[in-house]
Simulated assay, not measured.
Amino acid sequence: MNRRSFNRLFALGGLSLVSGCSHPLPPPKGKIIERSVVGKSGGGQTPLLSVTDDGDGPSVGSVLHGRSIGPGFVLDEELRGKLGRKYGNIGYYLKIRHEGYDGIQLAPADGSVKWYSTPVDQFNTVQIDDFVILATTITDSIGSFHRVVRDGTVAEKKEKPTDGRFGTISPDEDSRYVELKHAFGKTTIEIPYLSSSEIYDEIEVDGSYPFGVKRKTSEDGTPYSYLDSIDPGHGYSVL
């Protein structure tokens, strides 16, 4: 094997090793301040929808065909199909204001703002004003979230959901129904969640809390948001 081939093989092997290990720097983290959807065709991009943290609602177009819109709007498979047929490939982007690096080299500076592309399932997991800790890919897009923390005020809580909005939940699933109010600019929106029994017992109606939020799927494939912790410190451990 000549030197050039060896160096090339070593570089590829090194990349594989690095990709499989935890990054030595803390992962990027910050607050989501904009969520945008664009159509990609013919070498250009068409802005379809953009929602920001100023609370003024969607700022581009009206592509949701009469559906409600808010800081955590979700693009389901049916709507993605309609947009894809009309606009071609669809791109999903999150703008994040970074927090808490204190000058660590090569990490986003505290207060810096950056756009990230993201898969649609991760795009649908978050809403405006969420605090997020990112798991980025080698191309510096978002692959997933280590943590999503969302502030909310408890409007209602029930032992078990009864209206089927979460799909078919397993009988042994540890779940309780919680309705949260979220401030969005000058308005307030209400969103339903399931939660662990520990969280359900700890929270009180009209109380405000920072919740750790995860995206789950019921037995029949219905996606829903799940409150898995109360997280005032935006906690995260790499271990």
Rank of each mutant, 00 (worst) to 15 (best):
R4N: 10
R8C: 05
L12S: 14
L12G: 05
G13F: 05
L15C: 07
S19H: 02
S22G: 10
S22Y: 01
S22T: 11
L25S: 15
P26A: 14
P27K: 11
I32V: 11
I32E: 05
I32W: 02
E34R: 12
V38F: 13
G39T: 08
G39C: 09
K40P: 01
G42D: 10
G43M: 06
P47A: 15
P47M: 13
L48S: 10
D54P: 04
D54T: 11
D56K: 14
G57D: 12
S59K: 15
V60K: 15
V63T: 07
L64M: 12
H65T: 06
G70E: 10
V74L: 05
L75V: 15
E78L: 11
R80M: 15
R80Q: 14
G81R: 14
G81A: 13
K82I: 13
R85P: 00
R85H: 03
K86E: 15
K86A: 13
Y87V: 13
G88A: 13
G88P: 12
N89W: 00
G91A: 13
G91E: 09
L94Q: 06
K95L: 12
E99G: 08
I104S: 09
Q105V: 07
A107H: 02
P108G: 08
P108S: 06
G111F: 01
G111D: 06
S112M: 02
V113S: 01
K114D: 00
Y116Q: 09
S117D: 12
S117N: 14
S117A: 13
V120Y: 02
D121S: 11
N124A: 08
T125F: 00
Q127K: 11
I128T: 03
D130N: 09
D130C: 06
F131E: 02
F131R: 03
V132H: 01
V132D: 03
L134H: 01
T136P: 02
T136S: 11
T136F: 00
D140T: 10
D140R: 14
F145R: 12
H146E: 06
H146F: 12
D151Y: 00
T153F: 04
E156G: 01
K157P: 08
K157E: 09
K157Y: 04
K158V: 06
E159N: 13
D163G: 11
F166K: 08
T168D: 11
S170A: 15
P171G: 06
D172K: 13
R176P: 03
E179C: 01
A183V: 10
F184G: 05
K186D: 12
T187Y: 04
E190Y: 00
I199Y: 00
I199T: 07
Y200S: 01
I203Q: 07
P210R: 15
F211L: 04
K214R: 07
R215D: 01
R215P: 00
T217Q: 07
T217M: 02
S218P: 02
D220S: 06
G221E: 05
P223G: 12
S225N: 11
L227C: 10
H234S: 03
G235M: 03
S237I: 02
